[in-house]
Simulated assay, not measured.
Amino acid sequence: MDALDKVVKPKTKKAKRFLEKREPKLTENIKNAMLIKGGNANATVAQVLRDVYALKKPYGVLYKKKNITRPFEDQTSLEFFSKKSDCSLFMFGSHNKKKPNNLVIGRMYDYHVLDMIELGIEKFVSLKDIKTSKCPEGKKPMLIFAGDDFDVTEDYRRLKSFLIDFFSGPTVLNVRLDGLEYVLQFTALNGKVYFRSYNLLLKKSWCRTPRTELEEMGPSLDLVMRRIHLASDDLYKLSVKVPKALKPKKRKNISQDTFGTTFGRIHMQKQDLSKLQMRKMKGLKKRPAENGVDDQGKKMKDN
């Protein structure tokens, strides 16, 4: 049995709060990510992990020591770290002669690996290499996906879903214009994925809406897809299942379209218009000219 599975009943208040924090919830917490270096990670891979951690803060854990593990062969160490740090996302970096500058990104479900995608780094520009202002910690980014592959190919659709989970950040109800500070763009083209990040600059304009400009911030990555380990359809459906308490209650004869507009259907009995009570109004009375009588009550002559 795992050491973390032996805790049955908390003996202190701190342990009780710790267990309550990890209990299943209707609305899940913000997904944390762990970034792990492999036993043979080089300087490029280590810098990529540090830059991604800078974008992910404070919802991430960066392991500084090297860990000798192979995610596609043995996943027990990743599941142990996931349970220890309470992270449902991970990024593992390694380097060898056969697969240089390698990144493995994946998701967890119930502290078990759900799916993984292996990416190779072909070109990398670090945060520190681009001398511009950086986005403050904890800001929610805007995500842009360009390329037909994200909507056509199943592997790229799953990659898009993972990238949204990894970088989406906290859920917000209201958006303030000044809070839109940086953009992450992912472009799928010719079998590669181009990852770029930009600062959003709001400039003065001749109207109330400011003029926007993009300034490259870093990091910049050119990625190529390698191995893929996807969960079965049944397990994937189970992982995205919405709790019954969160499902909207069905209301009879009321529906909504994709834009949230509410439509209602009303059922009425057949009306008998012969019994309809018409209200008398002065505006409905005929004028004297329409009756062929002038204002003094005399009959008008036909010309």
Rank of each mutant, 00 (worst) to 15 (best):
K6S: 08
V8L: 14
K14W: 00
A15W: 09
M34N: 03
K37D: 10
T44W: 10
P58T: 14
Y59I: 00
L62S: 03
F72N: 02
D74R: 06
Q75L: 10
F80C: 03
S85G: 11
H95S: 12
P100D: 00
I105L: 12
I105F: 03
H112A: 10
V113M: 01
M116T: 04
K131T: 04
E137W: 02
K139P: 06
K140R: 15
L143E: 09
D151W: 09
V152A: 07
T153K: 13
D155E: 15
S161A: 15
L163V: 05
T171P: 01
L173E: 15
E181A: 04
N199P: 07
L201Y: 03
E213C: 07
E216D: 03
M217I: 07
M217K: 02
G218P: 07
P219A: 04
D222P: 00
R227N: 13
D233A: 09
D234T: 14
Y236H: 13
V242M: 07
K244W: 13
L246Q: 07
K249N: 14
K250Y: 08
R251F: 10
R265D: 08
H267A: 13
D272R: 02
D272M: 00
R279T: 09
K285V: 00
K285R: 14
R287L: 02
G297K: 04
